[in-house]
């Protein structure tokens, strides 16, 4: 069996297992940590696909910065223990129904569109040079400049919004 294929299946199992752990864990800290592992597994997927930049960004931004903030908030509020029982009783059947629908759709698409050729790009084609990074940067700043800038403005707006919301009224100060 191909080494890459073996790696893929191990990773896929890890990703699915950590996603399940995230959903089923009754402790919010553990759920957050499962999500970190999930992000890390996905980062290795990107590496397998020959996109080291995306992989490293995935780890830095999602597994690192964002999840640390999640953990921070969970620990700060002491909200790690989830309440027993359902808060929204109608939520569970709805979620199960939606999940079945999504799964059926995925299977249908996979069978119809992709002929399930298990051929991953060979990681050997990932040449250890700066070229792929340069190409990506060039694309980002020429062909996809507008979406790139729009995204950055969007993030800026969100950031300013968060600051304004958390600032609160200044009372008693000129």
């Amino acid at each position: 069996m191909d080494f890459t294929l073996l790696l893929f299946f191990i990773l896929a199992a890890t990703a699915v297992a950590t996603a399940l752990g995230l959903l089923l864990s009754r402790n919010a800290v553990y759920a957050a940590l499962f999500l970190v592992l999930n992000f890390a597994a996905i980062a290795v997927f990107y590496l397998l696909l020959g996109a080291p930049f995306v992989a490293m960004t995935q780890v830095t931004v999602y597994a690192g910065a964002i999840m640390v903030l999640f953990l921070f908030v969970i620990m700060m509020l002491g909200a790690e223990k989830l309440p027993k029982g359902e808060v929204l009783p109608w939520q569970r059947p709805l979620a199960i129904g939606a999940a079945i629908l999504l799964f059926a759709e995925t299977v249908l698409l996979l069978v119809q569109r992709v002929r399930l050729t298990i051929g991953l790009p060979d990681p050997g084609t990932w040449e250890n040079s700066m070229d792929s990074l340069r190409q990506m940067a060039k694309m980002l700043f020429t062909d996809y400049l507008l979406p790139f800038e729009v995204t950055s403005v969007l993030l800026l707006v969100a950031m300013i919004g968060a600051i304004v919301l958390t600032k609160g009224e200044r009372v008693g100060r000129s």
Partner: peptide, 26 residues
């Protein structure tokens, strides 16, 4: 290891390093 994204690797490991301390505390 000789990574073409070496500096980004360092960044990502540095951002993972936060977890140990915060988990030890919690």
């Amino acid at each position: 290891a000789d990574l073409n994204v070496g500096v980004l690797y360092i960044m990502s490991i540095a951002s993972i390093a936060v977890y140990g301390v915060v988990l030890a505390g919690w």
